[in-house]
Every structure is written in structure tokens, then in C-alpha cells.
Design a protein around this nucleic acid. Structure first.
Lengths: 157, 157
DNA sequence: TATGAAAGACTCCCATC
DNA sequence: GATGGGAGTCTTTCATA
């Protein structure tokens, strides 16, 4: 069995790619004080290992007309697999739901929804409560985005 | 004044790039039934307009050793600019805080934090309450990520 | 790991229809 | 908008040290 390990250089490369994935390898090589070839090999290794999942374009929410972010906390009427499956299918099918998590505590699930305005939100909301049963639904509108990054800390790697 | 408009083709191109930003222009061209040149021009136009903010690498949270996601809801002791500035600086300075929003409702702010484990979370937590005052702090651990995408709906564009 | 080199892909920008 | 062409960059691989 071959153990796969990653070092501080890999951490730094990941950190760079999480900010800009289009940066030329030669430039990354400069920043980590290596030549391009080994940097290229390290990136390939991290892709193969699955550390790097994808390279995506991030859009400006306001400019693509989905300036409104809403968090919805819900509780489930019963903790049964059948309900969960329907809930899961629902959120998967609604593109406005960009994130969803099952939580500890009083709120069973939290969802993050992006829409153009309140009217569009109500359409999503109506659809949700029509297709799946909830005991409580609690919506909080985001008035301001203070921080948003897809870059997670790599220092723990 | 020149009005900048975007059509359904732009929507589709954005949708594609939000899933994979490394896909060759020639392939996008096929998918939207255009030749590469106009597709290239459309992408440049959307970049210039700021619709496309960045191209980033997404990493696997578990594989980079930050498998734990925690949501922290807080209320502020006073609604003063001085407090807000310190709070803002705090979250900006903590890489484990990947998202933060000011909300309507009972919870003033919600933060999303990613860490390796509970111990690492406590380090972040202690630092936060040491550096900034909060009236209430409410942490919910994510037991399961049901959905996570950086792709927002483009149909409203 | 570094260096050098070479092939190929892709981007980018022409000019023309 | 389509086609075609060409320069240039970047990726990818290999050979050598």
C-alpha cells in the first residue's frame, strides 16, 4: 500500500488555485520556488487524488440578476427515510437552492437560496411547501454579504 | 449610452462555465450551436461586464482535512458602526470563516465555518469571543451536506 | 528535483464573407 | 453571425542530469 502524503508546497499550490485556477503553472512555480515541471506533477497528483474536485467560474450574483440570498431553516414532520428522500429530491431539483445541510439542534435543515427578488422567492417557497411537508419554516433574508469565499483553509492538510 | 444585454445563449454559456471553467471554447460552441469565435466574444464580453468574477479550483473538504462545517448565528450587543467594523475585520481575518451574512430576524449574523474537528472549532470560537463581544452565539453542526453548488441559476439573466 | 526541448492544444485576434 | 488563418501562450510529455 502506497501512502499518499501532501506537504506545505501542496498546501500553497492549493491555496493559489483556490483563488485563481487560470494562473499559469510557470507563475505558480515562481511563487513556490520550484520549476514548472514538479508543480505540474503535484497538481496532477492532487487532481488524481480528488483533492481538486473541479474548476468553475464564479459569477457576480447581482449582475446575473440573483442579488437576493435567503436562508431557510426547516424542521421535519417526521424523521423517516421516505420523507428525507422526497426532501432531498426537491432541493436537488430546485436550482435556486444552492446549499443545504442537515443540522444538529432545533433546526433540522438549513438551505441557502438565491433569487432575483421576493416574488421569485415566493414561487420557490410555494413550490417547496406544496411538494414536501414541513413542521416549521423559518426564512431569513440576507441584507448584506460580509464574506463569501470558496477557498477553504489548507493549513490542516 | 450603450445598453448591455445578454440573451439565452449567454445564459447557457454561463451555466456551462459555472460547472466546468476549463472546457474548451470549441466544445461550448458545439453545445450552444455556434462557432467558436462568437462564443469567445461572448465570454470576453461577460468577463468585461463583470458577470464572470473569477475562475477557481474547488477542493474536496474531506480530503483536505476540513470535513466539519458549522453554522454560527450571533446577535450583536449594540448596533454601532464601531462594533461592526471590528466584527468585519475579525471574520475577514479568520480563514475558517468562509461565509458571513447580515440577516433580518432574530439572528443578526450567520457565519459558515469549516474546520477539521471540534477542537479546531473551539480554537476559532475562543478567538472570536475574545476579540469581539457578542450577546448570543448559537452554533449548529452540519451532520450532512445535502447540496453544495457555486452555480447560481442563470435563467433570470 | 532541475533543465531543456518539442508536440499539441487552446487562446486570441486578425481579415473576409 | 461563420470561416479560415496565424501568432502566441500554456499544457503535457519525454529525455537527461
Amino acid at each position: 500500500m502506497t501512502e499518499t502524503t501532501f506537504d506545505e508546497v501542496d498546501q500553497r499550490i492549493l491555496g493559489i488555485l483556490q483563488i485563481d485556477s487560470n494562473i499559469p503553472i510557470a507563475e505558480i512555480a515562481q511563487q513556490v520556488a520550484l520549476s514548472p515541471t514538479p508543480v505540474w506533477r503535484r497538481i496532477k497528483r492532487m487532481e488524481a487524488a480528488g483533492l481538486i474536485r473541479a474548476r468553475v467560474a464564479l459569477v457576480d450574483q447581482k449582475l446575473v440578476n440573483v442579488p437576493m440570498t435567503i436562508f431557510i431553516g426547516v424542521t421535519a414532520p417526521r424523521h423517516a427515510m421516505e420523507w428525507f428522500k422526497r426532501f432531498q429530491a426537491l432541493i436537488e431539483d430546485i436550482p435556486e437552492v444552492v446549499e443545504a445541510y442537515r443540522l444538529t439542534g432545533a433546526t433540522d435543515y438549513i438551505m441557502k437560496v438565491v433569487v432575483p427578488d421576493i416574488d421569485a422567492y415566493d414561487v420557490v417557497y410555494q413550490r417547496m411547501i406544496n411538494e414536501v411537508e414541513f413542521t416549521t419554516v423559518n426564512s431569513s433574508i440576507s441584507m448584506e454579504e460580509l464574506k463569501f469565499t470558496t477557498a477553504v483553509p489548507t493549513k490542516y492538510l
